[in-house]
């Protein structure tokens, strides 16, 4: 008998008489669990919670303005006007002010720009999926991570993000829920931004 069989047999021996929810059913139709009340203004809530986690937000009207805002943010951070973007964003009106390349990061990019799958009002988080056109390395290696979100991507709770994800088909290799820049309090419980990942998280919000 394998270790697997022995472990499962021991588990079965003490879970044999089951009552309560049927587990297969729970997976097929997840029951509705308690969801915290969020109030009505979801966009405002998203902004507040994002800021609470150390991120920042800029609201713009269209893609053109989004590119301008990206440039401004990089200038503010006093970095070179060069960035690495997710291939999914090739269609942005990039213009010539910025030097833009597309693809995963090998660790030497200071700024990345990525799309999001959705944004969660409950926690002020952005949800990013790995895939051919959205490399995960862009979410962690650069010093500045800029995420472009459209207002119709906003959902209320985590659970709403999962509904969307299930509808979109197969779960990708990586789902990143990101809420703020990288931080640590491992030295004397003192909060320090920029532990291993981005020192800045900036969300560009396109009102649609």
């Amino acid at each position: 008998m394998s270790a697997r069989e022995r472990i499962l047999n021991r588990v079965r021996a003490v879970t044999a008489d089951k009552n309560g929810d049927d587990p297969a059913r729970r997976i097929a139709e997840p029951p509705r669990l308690i969801r915290p009340d969020l109030g009505d203004d979801l966009v405002q809530r998203f902004g507040e919670k994002l800021t609470l986690g150390g991120g920042s937000l800029a609201r713009v009207q269209d893609l053109q303005q989004a590119v301008v805002e990206i440039e401004l943010f990089i200038r503010d951070a006093e970095l070179a006007l060069s960035l690495r973007a997710a291939p999914a964003l090739k269609g942005l009106p990039w213009g010539d002010a910025l030097e833009v390349s597309f693809g995963p990061s090998a660790g030497d990019d200071l700024v990345s720009v990525t799309p999001a799958f959705c944004a969660i009002a409950e926690t002020g988080s952005v949800v990013l999926l790995s895939g051919e056109h959205s490399p995960t390395t862009l979410n962690f290696l650069p010093d500045v991570h800029i995420v472009v979100v459209e207002s119709n991507q906003l959902v209320r709770h985590f659970e709403d993000a999962w509904i969307k994800l299930r509808e979109s088909g197969e779960i990708p290799r990586t789902v990143n829920i990101i809420t703020g820049p990288s931080k640590t309090a491992d030295v004397e419980q003192t909060l320090q931004i920029g532990a291993h990942g981005p020192r800045k998280l900036h969300v560009i919000w396109i009102d649609r």
Partner: peptide, 19 residues
């Protein structure tokens, strides 16, 4: 309320994934 990163990994990289 939530940490900076909550990461779900499911299997190895998929066909076409750049990383």
């Amino acid at each position: 309320e939530i940490t900076s990163y909550t990461t779900f990994s499911s299997g190895p990289k998929r066909a076409g994934d750049p990383d």
